[in-house]
Design a protein around this nucleic acid. Structure first.
Lengths: 250, 250
DNA sequence: CGCGGGTTTGAATGAGTTCAATCACGGTGG
DNA sequence: CCACCGTGATTGAACTCATTCAAACCCGCG
């Protein structure tokens, strides 16, 4: 629960009562081992998940075995707000590591945010950010080279982690509990080429991805290579619901 | 307005009163010519847009001129519900053609859906579908070949149009008011390769993209090539808000 | 008739894939 | 303590899909 609260608080004004309401929400905890299926394609969604620890991956499988990882879900992330209209899952969610998940029933979650505008705003923000991350993933895949993709994704992951850890984490070093194959499936590359590209980045003195970690060697250089611009993460924005007054301009 | 209503009604139970509430919402109409910028990067979002006619594109521009089109917005689509938390745009929206847009202020829109669960559900559904389309775009870019990408996107566009036209449109023929360059920027390809690939598809007797239209020559073959599975469009689902009863299974 | 936007074609190049072999590392069992 | 195994990472060589650059083409329009 803590990483989620950390994250939400950074963007919305949540007071003691809001946090209590959130913590008191009836829920169940699920502890998974690595590589467990959490949500299967076609399944009807009826609960919200909050990642308390561990990494999850959201992916789509093509019939001939090709796989595309849509995004990684880190501690503090929540999904799927789609359950609020009882949609069916069109993709799979799997644990990448041991993970601890908090599950809240859709109806109880809905009742809660209906009564609490601050929480509603906070979760809406989380959804806005998640969608934004998907869009950036599109840009990465469509218009960036392998080097840029890897550099860009690592910077995103580091930045996202910071949001959920109150800035206590070391921004130079990211625990990266995923195989080359997962990186490849996330970035639309082959395992082999991920290997070649990471070793290029290491030799270039920019980034060292090895032993389950990513170590930033040259932040400026890496950001330049990746053309990294974090505005899509909406980190500097304070969200609020619109007031009654009208918009300022056409 | 009509395409939007057509689309919403297909997925949610909207009665006369709901439709009236929607139609009566204060709004302004904007008529654009082709290639106008509707929303600029960094702009604060304070209104919901509904496409009444014409096509729009949502895109991100990299600093060296590369462009990625995130998706196409067709008549009946609505965006950006992100305005409900006053987020800033992290991308650009441009008209691809003459277009007619209905704009509703965020606060009035919010008041309306707060009071009307049916409309709230309907728009939530639209958001779920839009996000799903983004995810499919990720799969296309990450794990499909050029041929598959083009075939897949055309099938999606045809299917989406059907949702907004009460099935009166001809599913074999799609008006495609976009240049090769836009197709290329949407699919992460070069203009040249789009040209080569469409001419391959034409010679293969599958799909004829020319003169601003896409004509399906062999639907089955095209769907096989594209590995097209429309469940991600959620067309067969009836959405509703969750009741108070609990979920059926763990 | 010539101009311009968009499209197509050709040839050379390049980024990334594929397949297969090798390596590194951490068990596990003898 | 070491041989054996399995998983994941790396390397090399051949290949392929897509890009780049440049030229030609098409067609509607002034």
């Amino acid at each position: 629960m803590l990483p989620m609260i950390e994250r939400l608080q950074r963007f919305s004004q949540l007071d003691r009562a809001d946090l209590d309401a959130l913590k008191r929400l009836p829920h169940r905890i699920r502890e998974t081992s690595a590589h467990e299926e959490i949500i299967a394609t076609g399944q009807k969604l009826d609960r919200v998940f909050i990642v308390e620890s561990g990494w999850l991956i959201r992916s789509r499988l093509l019939d001939d075995g090709r796989r595309q990882i849509l995004n990684f879900m880190l501690p503090g992330d929540c999904f799927d707000l789609q359950c609020l209209v009882r949609a069916r899952a069109d993709h799979t969610v799997t644990s990448a590591t041991l993970a601890r998940l908090r599950m809240i029933s859709a109806s109880e979650f809905l009742d809660c945010v209906r009564d609490n505008a601050n929480l509603a705003t906070a979760f809406w923000w989380a959804a806005v950010q998640e969608e934004s991350i998907l869009r950036e993933q599109i840009v990465r895949l469509g218009r960036r080279t392998a080097r840029e993709r890897i550099a860009h994704m690592m910077l995103e992951l580091i930045r996202r982690r910071r949001l959920a850890t109150a800035g206590t984490a070391n921004d130079e070093l990211l625990k990266l509990p995923v195989t080359r194959e997962m990186i490849a499936d996330a970035l639309g590359l082959s395992e082999v080429h991920v290997s070649r590209t990471t070793s290029f980045l290491r030799q270039a003195g920019l980034l060292d991805v090895s032993n389950g970690t990513a170590k930033v060697l040259d932040l400026k250089g890496l950001m330049r290579l990746a053309d990294f611009d974090e505005t899509y993460l909406h980190v500097d924005e304070k969200f609020r619901l619109p007031g009654r007054e009208h918009a300022e301009s056409a």
